[in-house]
């Protein structure tokens, strides 16, 4: 019995470093959000997102700095940070979860599901999104397009604003990864 316990403790302590060989870290990213409204479509893009993925467990995390979203209009960008996302208080959007439903041996694009916790504007929500994944020996790609309901994250749209912002915005997330040793 003691022997089994010892083995277990050993695995628990050292497994992460053994699994390290299965880890991928992002080397480029593209995040976009898009809100379609009658008066004006609003779009912002960001290439400062970071992500890591563990192929053996399917675990994935990403972090996107809110301040790095670029808008066409400077003032809109300022208001986005100051009044909507309050980026000084909540600097990053985060996702911690797992990807499942894919074949780790397949080297073409395949459908997959990401399930986990999304944190935006300091609010955590359980989410499931569908996306695509492509695994190569030393690199990986991932992309997903999903809607975000602003109300879920307590992002309030004032009634009297001159930008017409939709209640739901479409978010595109793309990452490319390379394997780390």
């Amino acid at each position: 019995m003691k022997f089994v316990c010892a083995i277990y403790v050993f695995i628990t302590l050292f497994a992460p470093s053994i699994l390290l060989a299965q880890k991928y870290i992002s080397n480029s990213s593209y995040i976009r959000f898009y809100s379609e409204a009658p008066v004006e479509n609003i779009e912002a893009t960001n290439d400062a997102g970071k992500s890591a993925f563990n192929l053996s467990t399917g675990e994935v995390v990403f972090s996107i700095p809110i301040k790095s979203f670029t808008f066409e209009k400077s003032l809109m960008q300022e208001h986005f940070n100051e009044n909507y996302l309050e980026s000084d208080k909540y600097p990053n959007a985060k996702f911690v979860g797992k990807i499942h439903g894919f074949e780790s041996t397949l080297d073409t694009w395949q459908e997959a599901k990401a399930e986990g916790k999304m944190t935006i504007h300091g609010i955590e929500q359980d989410v499931t999104y569908e996306g695509r994944i492509k695994i190569d020996q030393n690199s990986m790609e991932m992309e997903a397009i999903f809607p975000i309901q602003l109300e879920d994250y307590k992002i309030k749209i004032p009634k009297v604003v001159f930008y017409n912002i939709a209640e739901i915005v479409e978010v595109t997330v793309k990452f490319t990864y390379e394997k780390i040793n």
Binding site: P16, L19, K23, I25, S26, K50, S51, A52, F53, N54, T57, E59, V60, V61, F62, S63, V96, I180
Partner: peptide, 10 residues
């Protein structure tokens, strides 16, 4: 621990 480690990477 594994998730923490992934977060630590980024």
């Amino acid at each position: 621990q594994a998730q923490e480690e992934l977060l630590g990477l980024i």
